[in-house]
């Protein structure tokens, strides 16, 4: 079916979004065409405002609406610890735990040679600059427990060795509430490798 050009343009634009195929793009388009004018305006405005006002925090490269993000502006946090994550979404996940009170550094990706992402495409140089001062004594590597995350964490661990600071990594193991017998070999192996004394 051929849609009017303006509708087709909208379908095409939605198809460019991650995880949206042509069918979903059509569904979203028709939902918007049937929606109230006010709702559509609110959505369009939200996209424009978010795009206009969002920027990367100049210190940690998290999403921010000012030069420094709210976390970097918070002087009550523990400046001795920096948690290195792949994406701004990971900051949100870690903040939800309420367990970490240090600062973050967002790499904005992970090493993936097959996608052409090497160390020069990540915010590694900026991390090293942050570590040049004396105040940081621990870097916590919080990468995803997958191939790219693991490679990034090990690459950073080697790079940070000469700084003489403690470099730790998120423990990896069994999910809370899960059964041991259903764990895959890699997860169970990692859980065993990262075991800790209970006494």
């Amino acid at each position: 079916m051929i849609y009017p050009p303006t509708v087709q343009t909208l379908v095409d634009e939605f198809s460019k979004l991650p995880g949206i195929g042509p069918k979903s793009a059509q569904r979203i388009t028709f939902f918007l065409l049937k929606a109230d004018q006010a709702e559509v305006m609110a959505l369009a405005n939200a996209i424009l405002v978010a795009k206009e006002r969002s920027q990367w925090c100049s210190r940690c490269f998290n999403l921010s609406e000012s030069e420094l993000c709210p976390i970097c502006r918070d002087s009550t946090r523990d400046a001795r610890r920096i948690c290195v994550v792949e994406e701004p979404r990971d900051v949100v996940a870690l903040e939800r735990t309420g367990e970490f009170r240090g600062y973050y550094h967002v790499l904005q990706g992970s090493l993936s040679p097959i996608d052409g992402i090497g160390p020069e495409k990540l915010r590694i140089k900026e991390l090293l600059q942050r570590l040049a001062g004396p105040e940081v004594d621990e870097v916590i590597l919080c990468m995803n427990p997958n191939l790219e995350g693991e490679a990034t964490a090990l690459y950073l661990a080697r790079l940070l060795g000469p700084f003489g600071i403690s470099v730790t990594r998120l423990a990896s193991g069994l999910p809370v509430g899960g059964d041991l017998e259903y764990a895959d070999e890699r997860t169970l192996g990692k859980a065993l490798e990262g075991r800790r004394s209970v006494l």
Partner: peptide, 24 residues
């Protein structure tokens, strides 16, 4: 079922790049 994970390939960027080139 996992037969071999080749986990050492994740630990070194040069080896990772070479293994990725093979896969690619």
């Amino acid at each position: 079922d996992l037969v071999h994970g080749h986990s050492a390939l994740h630990s070194d960027f040069l080896r990772l790049s070479k293994a990725s080139a093979i896969m690619e």
